[in-house]
Design a binder for these strands. Structure first.
Lengths: 153, 153
DNA sequence: TTGCTTGCAAATATTTTGCAATATC
DNA sequence: GATATTGCAAAATATTTGCAAGCAA
């Protein structure tokens, strides 16, 4: 995952101004393993910036996503964000349904997949959902939020 | 995909009452290859039922999803629905970014995937996005709506 | 007849936008 | 100092809920 410095440098390099809020955002995402909803981010940021407004959070999340320092994934309960992977080779993710920590998986199924006739594939998604060791032990594997999509098994 | 009759029978069998609206919904989804947003459904239904309200559409979509006759997938612009696959064996999907038609793919990558240490997988998602033959020919492969998730390639 | 469904209205929640004040470069 | 960023207010959008009337079984 990107570090606080990498995030800030990328933003700065793109002409964005580095405000205190954006420093805190960079740090928050650099130190968070799971996905955060806009509300999560807002609540965290509110502790440090009393007069914070929700729209600023949205604006910054969008800017950071467009810039590529944040990844966005849609869950059934809305969009969530995390720092972009710093792994430069193609990979996929295993996501903990309890703490939403993610683990990269190098295996890509595309090489083994027979593409249906005359279908041009431009993008694919391969994600596994489950429970990491820590969450299994703490018994959190009871009722995690379901990810988006047609619940595979 | 499920037929109109299968959808209606399932709903009826679960104790739901079969209203004219629900018949139309069943038919709409049985005859639609792609995903429909709540708004799509509302606009279609409005043609037949002048006084239709949006909340009824939401309620029926939710009920039909919970009942399993509809699949839901999150796109970046919101949830969309389609009739549940009638294929009973495990499979995945190839989804056209232009017309959103889907093609089932039998190959499942889970068998070939090394699950990271001590991660318990309970669910997975493997989806390919691209353009079907028809949309390639009509040149619709220009700017399709991006699917949810961290844009793989 | 019973009680699930619907339409209406309104409440919530979510996300976006205009604008003046402010802070960064 | 020029201009991107922020907070505020409000708009636009999306989704849910309560309730009385209507309709399926």
């Amino acid at each position: 995952m990107l570090t606080t410095e990498q995030i800030i440098e990328t933003m700065s390099g793109q002409g964005l101004r580095i405000t205190d809020q954006r420093k805190s955002l960079a740090q928050l995402f650099a130190e968070t393993e799971g996905y955060l909803s806009p509300k999560d981010v807002y609540e965290y940021m509110c502790k440090k910036y009393s007069g914070l407004s929700f729209d600023t959070v949205y604006r910054n999340l969008r800017v950071m996503h467009e810039l590529g320092v944040l990844e966005q994934i849609m869950f059934e309960d809305g969009a969530k964000f995390r720092a972009h992977c710093s792994e430069d080779h193609h990979h996929h993710h295993m996501i903990c349904l309890s703490c939403q920590k993610t683990v990269p998986v190098k295996f890509c199924p595309m090489a083994n997949t027979d593409v249906p006739d005359q279908f041009m594939v431009v993008q694919h998604k391969f994600e596994m959902f489950g429970y990491c060791k820590g969450c299994q032990e703490s018994g959190a594997a009871a009722q995690g939020a379901a990810p988006a999509g047609q619940g595979g098994r």
